[in-house]
Simulated scan of single mutants.
Amino acid sequence: MQQPSRAAVLSGRSGGGKSTVLERLASRGFPPVDEPGRRVVRHELRVGGQALPWLDGPGFAQHCIDEALADLVGHDNGQWVFFDRGLVDANTALRHYAGSSWCSVDELQSYHQRVFLTLPWRELYVGDDEWQLGFGDAVGEYSRLLGAYDELGYTITVLPRVSVTERTDRIFTELGFV
Rank of each mutant, 00 (worst) to 15 (best):
G12T: 07
V47E: 12
Y149T: 05
C103I: 02
P53K: 07
V178P: 06
Q132N: 12
A8F: 15
L119R: 15
G29P: 04
L10K: 11
D137W: 07
V158K: 08
L159G: 11
T92N: 13
W80D: 03
V164H: 00
F30D: 06
S19L: 02
F116A: 13
E174N: 02
G147Y: 00
D66V: 05
E44H: 11
L87N: 14
L94K: 09
D66Y: 03
L117G: 06
A70R: 11
L108D: 15
D89C: 06
R95V: 14
E44N: 05
A98N: 14
T20G: 02
E130N: 14
Y154P: 04
P53M: 09
T155S: 05
A8H: 14
G176W: 03
P36H: 02
A90P: 09
D56S: 12
C64I: 06
Y97R: 11
P160S: 08
L45Q: 10
M1Y: 09
Y142D: 05
R114E: 10
R167C: 05
V41G: 15
E166H: 02
Q3P: 12
I156E: 04
T20Y: 09
R28C: 03
Y142M: 06
L145D: 00
T157Y: 00
G140M: 09
A138Q: 06
Q79W: 03
R46E: 11
W131K: 15
V164Y: 00
D56E: 12
L133W: 01
A138V: 04
H112D: 00
R28A: 06
R95Q: 12
R167K: 07
L119G: 01
F116G: 15
T118S: 10
V126C: 08
P31T: 07
V139G: 02
T20V: 08
P36I: 08
V88W: 00
D71M: 01
L159S: 07
G127P: 11
Q132F: 01
V158L: 08
F60N: 11
A68M: 04
G147N: 09
D84H: 10
I171Y: 00
A61G: 12
F135W: 08
W121F: 10
Y142F: 14
G140L: 14
Y97W: 13
D137S: 03
T92P: 14
I65G: 10
V162D: 14
G29C: 02
R13H: 10
E174R: 02
A51W: 14
Y97M: 09
R28S: 10
S101D: 11
G78C: 03
S19Y: 08
V105I: 15
R114P: 08
W131G: 15
N91E: 15
V178Q: 05
D128Y: 04
G127D: 08
H63R: 15
R13I: 01
G15A: 08
H112I: 05
E166K: 10
V9K: 03
